[in-house]
Design a protein around this nucleic acid. Structure first.
Length: 770
RNA sequence: GGGCCCGUGGCCUAGCCUGGAUAGGGCGCCGGCCUUCUAAGCCGGAGACCCGGGGUUCGAAUCCCCGCGGGCCCGCCA
């Protein structure tokens, strides 16, 4: 197939328009080309869509220039028309698909020749030019995208899944842009959390509790972790409450003599009352009592007293202090009580379902301090290389990871590699890191502890100062006083490993927003110990949390909405909606085989799950109501459009489009050859599709630069909308006019190809029929 | 106490970095359209003091300052 236009590299028509305006403004306003370039780069001048097609398609506001040059409003039109004439008589008219140019109150607007743009875009896609252009962005550079990296202690929940979906979508995009991408999962197996789970699991093994065959293994471990954690936390809370009671007694004892003295001095009934109540409570503290009630009684008496006093004198002040101290205790007690209640509620429901685990662990966990020590011991031994302990850590982590893999596989996420914190990844460069840090001028030594004073480092290194901005870089601890290392230390070592051993040119870490500070500290450390280039190439892909309406998630309490559940729920909801629609349309019999339909529901469920997690800007908290999943159905909408395009093509050519992509392309090339020299006039709906398609590469580039995968979904949505409108308003296969029919058919094929790519990037399963 | 992020119709969201013409979508709601390429669709309608107050500007959802509300971070935790 031949070239439609000149052989020069096609730039988007927006860039082309920019050249056009630069040329004309340079001549009319006598501004230097460099100055104009600056204006465009800074956004002083900006090419935008017009609000109304009557004014043209794209335009530029001249107001900034008019004001800068002090041009009188009466002369605006004259200058504007000059620009219009200049463009009209230039080569740009042909080069940039311009049909007409107009001056409209302060703006110069151009009308795009959509039929030429249409041919160009279709040509680029069919001749692989577009793909080549996109592939050049990555140019084969090696990128590591680390994502998910959830502690292997419970099943993946919807919050973790946001990480996975963002990470995998971004990785897919990078592949599409020609990067050599590797997706990595960093296994945090050395922390206290895993040790806690290992502790619980070992107790169960000792008590002959076997792994269940009827429960997904990561879910089972999640229960163990939660129960151990709850038992421990509850014990700690009781201890805190007890301390509080002691403080209460101390306060009463402290104020008793003061109140006595006040009474004997002032001889007021109100004071007498306080004394009586205090005596009563003091006695009761030595009997069986409700701590909460006692505080309530005394605070209410004090409050009553203070309300009766109007004068500001010493009497009131000491009573007020008394009240304040009690209020403080009451508040603290309330929060402990509230927390305890939440733990208890979670515990009861867990134990109703898994009584075995509870009864064993309840027996074992009587002294929290003892458990803490054992957990601590497990960590030491694991870090020191104890084989017996390591066996358990590996078993637990691998079991949970196998659950992760199973869940993620469902939503089309497969990792290239798992890097273990306890293995080479976390430890290979550990010694080097520690040695280099100990030689830094900002390093503090306290016992065996190793701490970098990043505040000082920031004063001497602009790079670090800029990284933190107004934030305090803080002290960064890399080794504890007992000589053990921390997660963060191994994180620094792992970063080096990614560049040195895994050969990364660029690294993206998809990590939640709560770790921004830690990630900056890691970067600063890398920079300080001589890995400046690596520090620059280490990108923290930040994302916000997922919050559920009407449900508080807490992995420590074993309360979460798991990814597995979301997928199941979506699958059911999507199926119900489909069936309901068919019934509403008066249909009784299935159109396609039940198995195919069921598979389609499953795929739709997956698409919906991914779409939900992709729907919002990563920097915004994603809030949704799990009871109203049906409201978040962007995924199925896109797929339905995709299915519709296929059924049109199936009818047109008689073969299965997705199974014969090459054949389809060949047909499209023929259509293109046929239309190439013909005069075609596009309707509004067709123009909209062309325009949307023309933004394709720009959109992908934006997603890459700004780390905003949500924009891929948004774009896909727009494309589907424009196609649906064409389909609804104009016949395609039934169109009598040969040229019109082929024009539309070609648009359908090209849109299908693009839509297929977009869905692949977003990790949607492709569906043929519904 | 300090720092960062977010605040757009009943709900969700785009636009903000780089100021410009009538703030774009979706869900939900109301009214239409299935013997015509599958209606998970399309067409029409109601619904927004762009959190509040100042400032900069010819012009502010967008930039600056001060508040308010929500989230997150300030560990020899991960």
């Amino acid at each position: 197939m031949g070239e439609y236009m000149s052989s020069e590299e096609y730039i988007g028509f927006i860039e082309c328009l920019r050249e056009t305006f630069t040329y004309s403004l340079h001549r009319v306003f006598n501004i230097s080309i460099d100055q104009l370039k600056e204006y465009f780069d800074k956004g002083v001048l900006k090419i935008t869509r017009t609000p109304n097609p009557e004014y043209g398609d794209y335009g530029i506001a001249l107001h900034p220039l008019f004001y800068k040059h002090g041009i009188d409003k009466n002369e605006w039109r004259i200058l504007g028309e000059k620009i219009v004439d200049l463009i009209k008589n230039s080569e740009y008219i042909g080069k940039c698909f311009i049909n007409d140019v107009k001056y409209v109150n302060g703006y110069v607007n151009v009308y795009i020749d959509y039929s030429r743009l249409y041919k160009r875009i279709v040509y680029e896609i069919l001749d692989y030019k577009l793909y080549d252009k996109l592939k050049r962005i990555g140019g084969g550079r090696r990128v590591i995208v680390e994502h998910t990296s959830v502690n292997p202690i419970h099943p993946l929940h919807i919050g973790n899944a946001r990480n996975s979906v963002l990470g995998s979508t971004f990785a897919n995009l990078l592949k599409y842009l020609g990067f050599n991408v590797s997706e990595h999962f960093y296994v945090n197996d050395m922390g206290r959390q895993v040790a806690l789970l290992v502790y619980g699991y070992r107790k169960l093994v000792e008590n002959n509790v076997k792994k269940p065959s009827n429960i997904k293994i990561d879910h089972w471990y999640g229960i163990i972790y939660a129960i151990v954690n709850i038992l421990l936390e509850k014990k700690k809370l009781y201890r805190k409450a007890h301390d509080l009671e002691e403080r209460f007694v101390e306060i009463i004892e402290k104020y008793k003599p003061i109140l006595d003295e006040l009474l004997s001095k002032n001889k007021e009934y109100t004071l007498l009352r306080i004394n009586v109540v205090v005596d009563n409570i003091y006695s009761k503290l030595k009997m069986k009592h409700s701590f909460r009630e006692l505080i309530d009684i005394i605070t209410s008496v004090l409050r009553d007293y203070l309300e009766r006093q109007n004068r500001e004198n010493k009497t009131i002040n000491s009573v007020r202090e008394f009240l304040d101290e009690l209020n403080g205790i009451l508040e603290e007690y309330e929060s402990i009580y509230e927390e305890e209640r939440e733990y208890s509620r979670a515990y009861t429901s867990l134990c109703n379902i898994y009584p075995m685990i509870c009864s064993v662990l309840e027996r074992e966990i009587s002294d929290p301090e003892h458990v803490e020590n054992e957990v601590q011991e497990l960590m030491y031994r694991y870090e020191a290389g104890d084989k017996e302990v390591a066996k358990f850590f590996h078993e637990v982590a691998n079991d949970v990871l196998s659950g992760f893999k199973e869940s993620l596989k469902k939503i089309n996420i497969v990792f290239d590699q798992f890097d273990w914190e306890s293995g080479e990844a976390g430890r290979k460069y550990l010694d080097e890191v520690l040695t280099k840090i100990s030689k830094l001028p900002y390093t503090l030594f306290e016992d065996k502890a190793l701490i970098i004073d990043l505040d000082r480092a920031a004063k001497e290194h602009d790079y670090i100062a800029k990284l933190f901005g107004k934030d305090q870089p803080g002290r960064f601890v890399l080794r504890r006083s007992d000589g053990t290392t921390l997660y963060t230390t191994r994180d620094v070592a792992y970063s080096i490993y990614k560049f040195r051993d895994l050969g990364a040119d660029l690294v993206y870490n998809v990590i939640a927003v709560e770790q921004v500070r830690e990630q900056r500290q890691v970067k600063s450390t890398l920079y300080l110990i001589g890995y400046r280039d690596e520090a620059e190439k280490l990108v923290h892909f930040v994302y916000e949390m997922v919050n559920l309406k009407n449900m508080k998630m807490s992995s420590r309490r074993g309360q979460y909405y798991t990814l597995d559940e979301v997928i199941e729920d979506y699958t059911r909801i999507v199926a119900e909606k489909y069936i309901e629609n068919q019934l509403r349309l008066g249909k009784k019999k299935l159109k396609i085989e039940p198995d195919l339909l069921r598979e389609a529901f499953r795929k739709l469920g997956i698409a919906c799950t991914r779409a939900l997690l992709l729907s919002t800007d990563p920097l915004k908290v994603l809030v949704f109501d799990p009871r109203r999943l049906e409201d978040y159905d962007l995924g199925s909408w896109i797929i339905y459009t995709f299915v519709r395009l296929q059924s049109i093509l199936r009818k047109a050519y008689g073969f299965e489009p997705l199974d014969n992509i090459d054949k389809l392309r060949n047909y499209a090339v023929k259509l293109y050859e046929d239309l190439r020299e013909k005069e075609i006039i596009l309707n509004t709906e067709e123009k909209n599709i062309v325009e949307t398609l023309s933004n394709y590469s720009y959109t992908l580039l934006t997603v890459y630069n700004e780390l905003k995968p949500n924009k891929i979904l948004e774009y896909t949505n727009t494309l589907c909308m424009t196609i649906n409108k064409l389909y609804e308003k104009h016949p395609i296969l039934n169109e009598k006019d040969h040229i019109k029919k082929n024009t539309r058919l070609l648009l359908v094929i090209v849109s299908l190809l693009i839509l297929k790519d977009l869905q692949t990037i977003m990790g949607f399963p492709l569906i043929k029929k519904l």
